[in-house]
Simulated scan of single mutants.
Amino acid sequence: MTNNSAGFWVRLGAALLDGIILTITLGFVSLLIYNQFFMEGFSFIDILNALYFLLLPIFWYGYTIGKRALGIRIVRIDEEEVGFGTMFLREIVSGLVYVLTFGIGLIVSAFMVGIREDNRSIHDFIAGTYVTYEKP
C-alpha cells in the first residue's frame, strides 16, 4: 500500500458526485419505466444503483464516475485491481454491517477516514482495499 491514500473530503466529494449523477440518471430511468421520478420502496432502480457501485469499479480500474472526476480510485491492499469478490465485500457485506449497527458503523467509518493515517474505513478493512490517487 502506498502513502498516497485519499482522505475524507475528496472521498466525500466523489460520493456526492456519484449521488447527484445517479439521482438524475436513475430518476429519468424511473420516469420512463414507472412514470415517477422517485420511487417509494424497493424497485428495479435500486438494483441498478447497487450494480453501479458493485460492477463499475471492476470494469473501470477501481473508478466510479465521481471518483474518476476527482482522480481517486479503489485498489486492493496488495495493489491488485478489484474484482467481484472484493467489491461484493466492500459494498454488500459492509452495507449489511452498517445497517446492522443502525448507521453507527458508517459514522465510525467517516471518522476512520478522517483520522487514520492510511485513511481506511470499515468497508476498506472488510474488503482489503483502500482509496488512492495512484493511476492504474
Rank of each mutant, 00 (worst) to 15 (best):
V75S: 08
V93L: 15
F84C: 09
I74L: 15
I126S: 02
L89Y: 13
E91W: 13
E81L: 14
Y130T: 11
T64P: 02
E81P: 10
L54H: 07
T86S: 07
I58C: 08
N4F: 07
L54Q: 12
F8T: 01
K135L: 13
T86H: 05
A69D: 05
P57E: 09
F37A: 07
M112L: 15
R90H: 14
K135F: 09
R90Q: 12
Q36C: 00
L16T: 13
N49G: 13
A69G: 00
F53R: 13
T23P: 00
A15W: 07
G13C: 04
T64V: 09
L70C: 04
M39V: 14
D118V: 07
A6I: 06
V99K: 14
E79K: 11
F38T: 15
R73G: 03
G95L: 06
E80Y: 09
Y61M: 11
Y98S: 10
V29E: 10
N4A: 12
A15F: 14
L70Q: 01
P136W: 09
I126K: 02
D78M: 10
A6N: 07
I104V: 15
A50C: 13
V113E: 02
E40F: 08
I21L: 15
I58Y: 04
L22I: 13
F37K: 04
T86K: 06
F28R: 03
F37M: 11
L12R: 10
G83F: 02
V93F: 14
F125M: 15
G66F: 01
Y98W: 12
E134W: 00
L17R: 00
T129Q: 07
G114C: 04
Y34T: 10
T64C: 11
L17Q: 00
M1F: 10
M112H: 04
M112I: 08
F111M: 13
T25H: 04
V113Q: 06
L55H: 09
A14I: 02
F42D: 00
L100Y: 13
G41H: 12
D78V: 04
V97Y: 00
L56S: 01
D124K: 11
R11N: 01
G128M: 03
P136V: 10
V113T: 10
L26S: 11
F8K: 04
R73Q: 05
T64K: 09
E79N: 14
I122C: 06
T64I: 10
I20C: 08
T132F: 03
G7M: 08
N49W: 08
N49C: 09
R76F: 00
A15S: 14
I21D: 01
G13W: 00
D78S: 10
G103T: 02
N3I: 09
